[in-house]
Amino acid sequence: MKVGLVQEEGRTWSSYTTSSLPSDTRDAHICAAQLNVWYGDKLALHDVTLAVDRGTIAAVVGPSGCGKTSFLMCINRLTDMIPRCRVSGALHLDHLNLMSPTIDVLALRRRVGMVFQKPNPFPLSVWDNLALPLKEHGVRKRDELRQRIETVLREVGLWNDVKDRLGHSALALSGGQQQRVCLARALVLSPEVLLLDEPCSSLDPLSSGMIEDLIVSLRGRLTIVIVTHHLAQARRIADSVAVFWAQAGAGWLVESGPTQQIFDSPQHPITAAYIQGHRG
């Protein structure tokens, strides 16, 4: 009843977005159509239709409170964890229907890694932070654990810093190192999608740069969706950009497309103003 009403309104809004849909959505790795998210009665994300191609980096930009994080959380079904949160619309990861109530969310979350805004390694040792998810997903042999943990720590450039104190608490590390532990923790399960929720926003520029380089190095291997406030960063690393905006408390997708196009010839006045504002 209420759903219908809102979706009615949404059609008029989404006319902007349909025009900018990626032309070939058949090869899309993640594909959302008319995705809505409610927290209780409050609509947080409105009618998002968006596709992300396999192996590319997609940046989601926009002001605070425009549903960027909500969008990410739909992709690994973290929305399940939020009380009174409802999701409607269509969302697919390859051919897996993410809206189905019967999918194995644990298996899904193994395929889709996530890193949060604030570095949040578990208050355990570095080793345990990485070993816990591995053990959970069936890696029991110590040799294999050791080898996978070393590989992933080398990958995030942390191995030399922590190899002698794997048994020490991850909370004793610096903020940038903690965030790299989190990244390693997400990567250690060899996911096919990586969701990054403003991974650099609470870090100093140096650590931020290291994380950024790391993300770029993953291009092609994983599909990455990164939420960021930092337009310059989006421009540097992303293959495609989606601009979200908040209207009456609900986030919606203004425009999406290849990075070049969004920055050089934005179609929508909001996008243009947003990019201008950040240029000036």
């Binding site: 973290l78 949040n120 959970e136």
Partner: peptide, 20 residues
Amino acid sequence: EYRLSAAALGLSRWTTVTRL
């Protein structure tokens, strides 16, 4: 955040509760 990141890693409730 701990619960969210545990869930995002696909940890089961059992593991989340007992280990974390």
